[in-house]
Design a protein around this nucleic acid. Structure first.
Lengths: 202, 202
DNA sequence: TACGTATATGAACAACGTTCAATTATCAGA
DNA sequence: TCTGATAATTGAACGTTGTTCATATACGTA
């Protein structure tokens, strides 16, 4: 009883996300804008606002995809039970992902809350997923009943790594050190594990 | 032999920076723009471009001031020779500064290089200054001849803390932990020191 | 007083995100 | 087959940006 849609809402969203990635690949994420995406997907500006609340929501969807792809990659890391081995191999997956998905990875760090606006629930869940992975790997270092310490340890490690990723994404890591990202990452985990073991031994 | 300036270039720059801080205090850093600053200092838009290359340079000057103020605060921290004591008291200065200069502090983390544009030399120097402070405090934990290890340790600590500051500035720390910034910061330093001591003890 | 020039202006431009009245294309019923 | 209702799509237009630059201004000097 009405005009039929050429594409479903999901199709449109997929098309928009694909178009957006193409724009980013060609012009860089700084030049991602509504008109460019609309043109690229063969629709008008207005249609973008039928699909998304605005540009920020489109970016949020892009980041959601990136986080999913990251988790998929990380989840493949083997868990042998030896924290050193496991953490370092997890780190290698991180690093592989970063080099293979530079643009999308960097966009994660460009996202900024417009005001004091809480991130959606799914975002928290995706981050929590990664915590779970880290927790599994660090588990052997803690005695039963030390769950709180384990959780805190995971958080601290994640925050430290975030510092590294964040500097790298902003191309500012070289300000701190000339060592390559990989070396710094592994060094950080080593020092971190040394700290955890020292606590355990006492 | 010409029209005399009401204010010297330095005066104008100071007025602009003051005006900018006022705008930020009132409307938030998101609403900092050339016209608002110009109006506030009683000049026109064009004058802004006689003083600065553009808005980004104005922000860079603001950040330079913030970094100077931070260093001044940090440099006051006493160096007793006990790394735990010294690092924790340095941390308290950090935290005091953050709460006292929220807006300016947050702007440091909003600055993003437009492209692959190297930051000015003075920026690198200001960061290096902080490294020097950290290095002095960690010095007792290293034997003579271990300068390279000391340097790397300083970098790793700084990067880890950067992760924490960065999350806090973006109001995203709560995603990781519900613990307050202060507790997380001190925990991070504790774990870090434990790792360093473990390495020292072999 | 008139000229030259450093200083200051603000209209104008391009690009942006966003809105929404108008247009289009389809289907259901007459 | 025609018509009206309705959902999908459009793109002109608005407001706000950063930035430019021809113009106006006001002062020291001749």
């Amino acid at each position: 009883m009405a005009r039929t849609a050429k594409h479903s809402k999901e199709e449109l969203r997929d098309m928009a996300l694909t178009a957006a990635r193409a724009v980013i690949a060609e012009k860089g994420s700084r030049n991602l804008n509504v008109r460019a995406v609309a043109t690229r997907m063969g629709y008008s500006v207005g249609t973008m606002y039928n699909i998304f609340e605005g540009l920020e929501e489109l970016v949020a969807w892009l980041n959601a995809e990136t986080l999913d792809a990251l988790y998929e990659e990380l989840a493949r890391a083997p868990v042998t039970g030896k924290p050193e081995t496991d953490l370092h191999s997890l780190l290698d997956r991180y690093l592989d992902f970063v080099t293979a998905n530079r643009q999308g990875w960097n966009m994660l760090f460009e996202e900024r809350p417009p005001e004091a606006k809480a991130p959606p629930a799914w975002y928290l869940e995706k981050v929590a997923q990664v915590f779970t992975l880290l927790g599994r790997m660090l588990h052997p270092l803690f005695a039963p009943g030390e769950e709180a310490e384990l959780t805190r340890a995971v958080h601290l490690l994640w925050i430290s790594l975030h510092g590294l990723w964040s500097l790298d994404a902003d191309d500012k890591l070289f300000i701190v050190t000339r060592d390559p990202l990989e070396k710094t990452a592994h060094d950080m985990v080593d020092l971190y594990l040394a700290g955890l073991k020292a606590r355990k031994g006492h």
